[in-house]
């Protein structure tokens, strides 16, 4: 079970979730993707869309950078 990182802090909707899906597609079932994103629209939509499309959102953690969060998604 491998761990991967993705930074989408510079992306806008809907490319935030597009980029997340592109990365998830490269993972094996059970692998973890740590998605770094900004609060507001990305934080509202990416975890919600991931759950809707059948992925597990394990946790959402705040980083030391203000307004930036890590969404931990398991494939």
């Amino acid at each position: 079970m491998a761990n991967y990182n993705l930074d989408i802090t510079h992306e806008h909707c809907p490319m935030t979730f597009v980029k997340t899906k592109i990365e998830l597609a490269k993972l094996k079932s059970g692998d973890i993707l740590n998605v770094r994103l900004t609060e507001g629209e990305p934080l509202q939509n990416v975890p919600k869309s991931a759950v809707e499309q059948g992925y597990n959102v394990l946790s959402i953690v705040e980083t030391e950078t203000k307004g930036v969060h890590i969404v931990v998604i398991q494939k």
């Binding site: 809907p14 597009v18 899906k21 592109i22 499309q53 059948g54």
Partner: peptide, 10 residues
């Protein structure tokens, strides 16, 4: 817009 669709995706 295809990749976003659950039934299409990557």
């Amino acid at each position: 817009r295809h990749i976003l669709l659950q039934d299409v995706g990557v």
